[in-house]
Design a protein around this nucleic acid. Structure first.
Lengths: 345, 345
DNA sequence: CTTTTTTGCACAATCGATTGCGCATCTTTG
DNA sequence: CAAAGATGCGCAATCGATTGTGCAAAAAAG
């Protein structure tokens, strides 16, 4: 355990174990049976390597190989349950498939997204997955020029295959739940308000579709003023609601947990009028169910999305193809447990 | 934009730009002035590279360099605000310092932690940061044998310098807050209950110290049965409380947001008795402030911790040295806003 | 005891970028 | 116009691991 100025290499080990570098290499990477190295030498090498605290130089190793098994993912944020789960489960599932996951967080910054993707290509990633990217097509174009596969997750693109939640169906089921609960608890069920997100965003647009669809199916008209998709931040959601003081039963469709933060802030300032409000949220958070007035949340099926996207790694698929994954609805307060699936066409 | 079977290399570019590979290399990595390459050639090369969608082969590049500027971090989970923030801010801050952050999530699995650290060394990381690691010393030993710097974050080790929150002081301030609020709202202030975590865990042990210290300072004795540090999970926290039905004013010190999930579950089953309960939580979550009965949360100062730990990269520091970072207290319900600092000695 | 086969291992080229060195050409100086 | 210096760029070695190939020695076959 002396301080070596340079890291130990297979050459050092070769010398110590009285073997050749090629023998050492094959022993340490497991190809030694095929190279007919004796068990005796293999054990000797392994021991020396262990004793020296050897770790392969991934750079040298990957430089020589043709496949890197590195799989890159860019993610906008780690600070909410959804993306946190995606990153965490992705690493786990990729590892289970013998791949080397490299995840990097790009803060919803389009420029950073592109730089990060480029960096992943530099690291010889075999595939780059763009999660919730603002400009996935730019990334796909670059990857395709570099001969690297790219896939989109959470937000679709046109230049690579995409896996996204079935936002429309999920939103419709959530809308139905909120309307039902308002009806059950208040007897009345006017049009809900749609809070948070931005309609230029694909997912928000799909959710609004589902939201409107369910209203239409019930013959409820949604006034334009009920659509408060003013942006992705707690402040913006709170600001959008700030002028509104409910005087009767009120239902909200909250579009993301970040918007939910703004909604509960607004609720807190409402005083007793807050008892007139019921809401549901698209996206799940463990504390969501304990917030007063919350009737349910939609959880996106991260596991299913990831296994679908990982199944596409190394496969050919048409560029614009979009694969929809059903969401799960978690209802609170009524029976409280069993999630029902936001299936649908 | 034709599909190249192999990625573009400097040799391809050299040919297209009618230059030598060494010229191309120096142009693309910015050292071309020092190598007296003409602006004309530099521009030509840059253009060809752009047109070909060139991205350096990081493997080849790093193999030749002596410093990689790669800085690795292992993190137990992404699924709570604290670690999510750490990962996210770490990437940002490291990048700002010209480093290449590589973060990997190890699920609190000691074996996986070690494997991940080894992998980071393979990637030629100049420094490995172990965050919340169960066995940081093992990682440090390996790194030191490989000649790689290692640092500990969140949980201290003895084989490398550590940066941790001042858990004791933070816990004491939180304890004081809960006791004060119980006194203010109920008039009485018996001993709180300490819920969640495990005392074999360094941070939990320090927090319990602060908890007991504040009680002692107020002359309040803490019955042994009030310490419910039964583990790190919502279920365990809920189970620890399940037999308990408060009959009078009750205060809880909740040790982590994961335990808080269990506590609010328990609260939900309490019915009206839940109005007798006030609690505070060590660790912050954006929805925490809206949970009924929550008087405050301690937020660890991620920014400060990271800038301190990043400041140690490349520096010599005594192995066992522990650097304590003050926490921030966020109070809810009373004035609700200004965080006061969990300073103290 | 040969010939053939198998076993066990080493040699050397290679992956792509970096970089010390050196050689032309061009410019300036005396 | 020659000598000295500056400018512009290419050559080739190098980083550490992988892998096709080849060559002894040992074992098996005849």
């Amino acid at each position: 355990m002396k301080k070596t100025p340079r890291r130990t290499t297979i050459y050092d080990i070769a010398q110590l174990a009285d073997a050749s570098p090629s023998a050492v290499s094959s022993v340490l990477n497991g190809t030694w049976k095929k190279r007919r190295i004796s068990v005796k030498l293999a054990e000797r090498v392994t021991q020396v390597a262990e004793a020296q605290g050897y770790a392969v130089n991934a750079q040298a190793s990957l430089l020589r190989r043709e496949k890197s098994n590195v799989i890159g993912m860019i993610v906008p944020k780690y600070d909410n349950r959804y993306f946190g789960q995606i990153a965490e489960r992705f690493e786990e599932m990729a590892r289970a498939r013998g791949l080397f996951p490299v995840v990097t967080c790009t803060q919803r910054d389009p420029e950073l997204e592109f730089e990060a993707a480029k960096e992943l290509v530099s690291w010889q990633a075999d595939c780059v997955i763009s999660t919730g990217a603002t400009d996935p097509d730019r990334i796909s174009a670059f990857c395709s020029a570099a001969g690297v596969q790219s896939l989109n997750l959470d937000l679709p693109g046109t230049a690579a295959p995409s896996v996204v939640s079935d936002n429309r169906a999920g939103a419709r089921v959530l809308t139905a739940l909120i309307l039902d609960r308002c009806a059950a608890e208040f007897g009345t069920s006017g049009a809900l308000r749609f809070v948070g997100g931005r309609l230029s965003d694909h997912n928000s647009a799909r959710r609004l579709e589902g939201f409107l669809e369910e209203h239409r199916a019930r013959g409820i008209e949604v006034p334009e003023a009920h659509v408060l998709a003013t942006g992705y931040s707690a402040d913006k959601a709170a600001a959008a609601l700030s002028g509104f003081r409910p005087t009767g039963p009120t239902g909200l469709f909250v579009n993301s947990t970040i918007a939910l933060e703004g909604v509960v802030r607004w609720l807190g300032e409402l005083g007793p009028a807050m008892d007139l409000v019921r809401y549901g949220c698209f996206d799940w958070d463990p504390f969501g169910g304990y917030l007063p007035g919350n009737v349910g949340m939609v959880e996106q099926d991260v596991e299913a999305m990831l296994s679908r996207v990982l199944g596409m790694v190394g496969e050919e698929a048409p560029a614009g193809e979009v694969s929809y994954v059903p969401c799960l609805l978690r209802e609170f307060g009524a029976d409280g447990v069993s999630p029902r699936t936001g299936q649908g066409g």
